[in-house]
Design a protein around this nucleic acid. Structure first.
Length: 291
DNA sequence: ATCCTATCCTGTAGGC
DNA sequence: TGCCTACAGGATAGGA
């Protein structure tokens, strides 16, 4: 569910709310997250720690505490971090797997119905050696990406450009919603093989990646169904989506009906007129000879 | 080596 | 209303 803009929104909100607070008590549901049971030692290592810094790379969140300990968090499809100045009764809210209670009575809870997320306690100094983080490509918002870099990385790649953008080892943070949005704005057919795209297309993709992700962060992300901010609010970028989830609706640029296809088991939305098969390849489309 | 598929889960939307 | 199916923002172990 949550992609880079949603995780960044969560990061900023947690920095506002829980930074500087001291964890007084940690409660675990005991359930496994992504098949990995959160060990009781995780709770022991966090108790008494003060939250110092909140970092993000791609869709991963790092909550750095004093004492050289960090939480590595990934929201999977349905994960949420919620902040409460005054937490509700635990039983009123299902699927909460981690409860951090702070000294001042406030709390941060990690809720994840589908349990595809990650919650690990790692050493801050070695956080990026965790296999999940070590495998990530550059973050388009933190370090930035440019077309030249993407063009070089895609050399020889036979995977469709849509799947290429979803590959977190290539670029970290783009998910299924924003991949469709970026390709629409860049005017690139999602079915094109990544290795066949030219410099101009990659330049547009890099530029639109920054633009789309930045605008989505400004609007606190996209609430398509389950994502919420730490205060339980909807993200507002959904109104700005040009193609995602809009099958059959007219393209905002040209009016042609948006189409949906399935690539690698996931929905892709695109406009056949604004994202023509030939354009990104540099093929010159000649006017049909007059008859 | 590089691809796509199936899979882990629950919640929700839509058809009948 | 209720039941059923399809699908969902992710990642990854497998098989082709």
């Amino acid at each position: 569910m949550p992609e880079l803009p949603e995780v960044e929104t969560v990061r900023r909100a947690l920095a506002e709310t829980i930074r500087g607070r001291t964890v007084q008590r940690v409660q675990l549901s005991g359930a496994a997250l992504r098949g990995e049971r959160v060990p009781a030692s995780a709770a022991r290592r966090l108790a008494g720690r003060r939250i110092d810094t909140l970092r993000r790379h791609g869709k991963y969140l790092l909550i750095d505490c004093d004492g050289g300990v960090s939480v590595l968090s990934h929201l999977g499809m349905s994960g949420r971090w919620l902040y409460f100045a005054e937490p509700p009764a635990p039983r009123s809210m299902p699927h909460v797997h981690v409860r951090l209670a702070f000294g001042d009575g406030s709390a941060a809870w990690y809720q994840d119905p589908r349990r595809f997320g990650i919650f690990r306690v790692v050493e801050t100094a070695h956080a990026f050696e965790d296999p999940s983080l070590a495998a990530l490509g550059p973050d388009p918002v933190i370090g930035g990406i440019d077309g030249t870099q993407l063009h070089a990385a895609a050399r020889g790649a036979r995977t469709p450009v849509k799947a290429f953008l979803l590959d977190q080892s290539r670029v970290a943070g783009i998910g299924n919603i924003y991949a469709s949005e970026i390709l629409h704005r860049a005017g690139v057919d999602p079915r094109r093989l990544a290795g066949t795209l030219g410099a101009a297309a990659w330049s547009r993709i890099a530029e639109e990646s920054r633009a789309v992700l930045g605008e989505a962060i400004d609007r606190m992300g996209t609430t398509f169904s389950m994502y919420r901010t730490v205060w339980g609010e909807d993200g507002q970028y959904g109104e700005q989506l040009r193609v995602y989830g809009r099958v059959g609706e007219p393209c905002v640029r040209c009016g042609r009906a948006i189409r949906r296809i399935v690539q690698a088991g996931r929905s892709t939305y695109w406009c056949t007129r604004c994202q023509p098969a030939g354009r990104a390849s540099g093929t010159v489309v000649r006017a049909r000879p007059a008859r």
